[in-house]
């Protein structure tokens, strides 16, 4: 297509995304299950969508300072690796699979979990921790990633994300 004046200006949809919200519930603590939520949150923020992440149950590992650097990937119970399940139970296999996956993630230029959270917060994303999970695991805000805004109840999260589209991971 050839354009002279007037210039075709892309519709960046600033009005359309105004008021659009996305809520993502992260309930898993495996390395491979941490990424879908982070990638979608990052994509939504880049599209101008207000984004809230709620970390609950095993998803708490993603924001717990002592664990967030050390999420693991296991072949056990995951038929999509197309390897014999018995292999996944051998000593050292989870460490090896984790190492391999971290390398693959790094190779495509995607950051590790703490750095990804940092980018999400820098992009305007909101991080919330689940009250019940904190109580069950005897953790408080000092144990959590600094940019987590607060430990809130499920009802609080539902209230904060009124009208949002929701993803449960």
């Amino acid at each position: 297509m050839t354009t002279t004046m007037p210039l075709t200006v892309p519709n960046f949809g600033d009005e359309a995304t105004e008021g659009r919200k996305l809520a993502i519930i992260c309930s898993k603590g495996n390395l491979d299950m941490a990424y879908p939520g982070l990638i979608l949150a990052n994509a939504a923020l880049g599209e101008g969508v207000e984004t809230h992440l709620f970390f609950t149950f095993w998803g708490f590992d993603m924001i717990t300072k002592s664990r967030m650097h050390d999420l693991k990937f296991t072949m056990l119970g995951n038929t999509a690796t197309h390897m014999p399940q018995g292999l996944g139970g051998l000593p050292g296999m989870t460490a090896m699979a984790t190492h391999q996956m971290k390398k693959q993630i790094q190779d495509v230029g995607v950051p590790d979990v703490p750095e990804f959270l940092e980018q999400i917060v820098a992009s305007g994303g909101h991080l919330w921790a689940c009250r019940m999970s904190a109580d069950m695991m005897h953790l408080d805000e000092s144990d959590l990633y600094d940019d987590v805004e607060a430990i809130i109840s499920a009802a609080d999260f539902i209230e904060k994300t009124e009208g949002a589209q929701l993803l449960f991971i």
Binding site: M1, T2, T3, T4, M5, L7, T8, V9, P10, N11
Partner: peptide, 12 residues
């Protein structure tokens, strides 16, 4: 005013 012709996709 842009005096030159430029090529764009459908979005611009």
């Amino acid at each position: 005013t842009i005096h030159r012709e430029i090529h764009t996709d459908a979005e611009g």
